[in-house]
Amino acid sequence: MLLPEGASTIAPEVDRLFWIILWITGFFFFLVQGCLLLFVLKYHSRGGQKAAYVHGNAMVEVVWTVVPAVILLLLTVASQKVWAQIRSPRPITPGMIQVEVLAEQFAWNVRYPGPDGQFDTSDDITTINQLHLPVGRPALVRIRSKDVIHSFFVPQFRIKQDAVPGLPTQVWLEPTKAGEYELRCAELCGLGHYRMRGYVTTEPEEQFQKWLTETKANE
């Protein structure tokens, strides 16, 4: 019923924010629904009692304006911290694995730069719909699209980024758990949108290297 298990370094951060918001909104949900129910039951005109002639109360009105405003401000600050962490550009470090995901109707073309670390060379390794990433190593995923807008969405990573033609985007992530996940296209891209499905495998470094070698050999 709740969020799927997180599998990237940012997942716990996003989940924590989610729970904070859920608690806050949950409180207000029960507060307002409770008052609504209580008032309707309590002030239901059965005996023909007369209603109070009240036009408002400045104090109360200020309180219910300021309190939510402060809470929302705090939420904004908390969100911004996580957002900056997820989306700020990072330098490309030697340990970082780079991978390009080129979306098209209705497949994900995945490309690794190969041993030389450069794209567009003969040792590039390409797959369709198969994205493998080593656990515990930061990855830079470059996202592009050939035709229409798609969206790169791996629920367990808590990551979503549109793939826009003419506008290359990128996300940074670091898988924390080995496993097999689904890459779901989250932006309507045509009749095959509903099953524009990729397969994400996160695995230990050695297995990942083995997979890369095998994939290259099979080309």
Partner: peptide, 19 residues
């Protein structure tokens, strides 16, 4: 002849013993 990357769809892959 090039091998087709049928791993893209397991339903396809399962239908071919060899690539």
């Amino acid at each position: 002849r090039e091998k087709i990357k049928m791993a893209a769809d397991p339903v396809c892959l399962a239908q071919h013993k060899e690539a």
